[in-house]
Deep mutational scan, measured.
Amino acid sequence: MTYRVRIENADGEVVTIEISADELREKGLTLEELLPPNARIVEVEEVEP
């Protein structure tokens, strides 16, 4: 499974990243732990691999 994640950074700019569930598991991280300081998740969407 892959996630498309929209993130708002500290400057108010919204960027989109895609990350797979396998990648998260391998790194032992959650989506929140990948965020840079002062950023927030705006939207998470599951996409087909």
Rank of each mutant, 00 (worst) to 15 (best):
T2N: 14
Y3T: 06
Y3L: 12
R4Y: 09
R4L: 14
V5E: 00
V5S: 00
R6L: 13
R6I: 15
I7P: 00
I7F: 15
I7D: 00
I7C: 05
I7A: 03
E8V: 15
E8Y: 10
N9G: 10
N9T: 15
N9H: 11
N9W: 12
A10F: 10
A10G: 09
A10H: 07
A10I: 09
A10S: 11
D11R: 08
D11I: 07
G12H: 04
G12F: 02
G12P: 00
E13L: 12
E13I: 13
E13C: 14
V14C: 11
V14G: 03
V15D: 05
V15H: 09
V15A: 06
T16D: 05
T16N: 04
T16E: 08
E18I: 15
E18P: 01
I19K: 00
I19P: 00
S20N: 08
S20F: 05
A21R: 07
A21Y: 09
A21T: 06
A21E: 09
D22A: 14
D22I: 09
E23R: 05
E23W: 15
R25P: 01
R25T: 08
E26T: 13
E26N: 10
E26K: 11
E26I: 12
E26L: 13
K27N: 07
K27A: 08
G28S: 05
G28W: 03
L29I: 12
L29Q: 07
T30P: 07
L31S: 00
L31M: 06
L31K: 01
E32R: 07
E32Y: 10
E32M: 12
E32L: 12
E33L: 06
E33C: 06
E33D: 15
E33K: 07
L34H: 04
L34F: 14
L34E: 01
L34C: 08
P36G: 13
P36V: 03
P37N: 06
P37S: 07
P37R: 08
P37V: 07
N38T: 05
A39I: 10
R40Y: 06
R40Q: 06
R40C: 07
R40V: 09
I41N: 02
I41G: 01
I41L: 06
V42C: 07
V42E: 02
E43F: 14
E43P: 01
E43H: 14
V44R: 02
V44W: 11
V44T: 03
E45D: 06
E46F: 14
E46R: 13
V47G: 04
E48H: 15
P49Y: 13
P49W: 11
P49N: 13
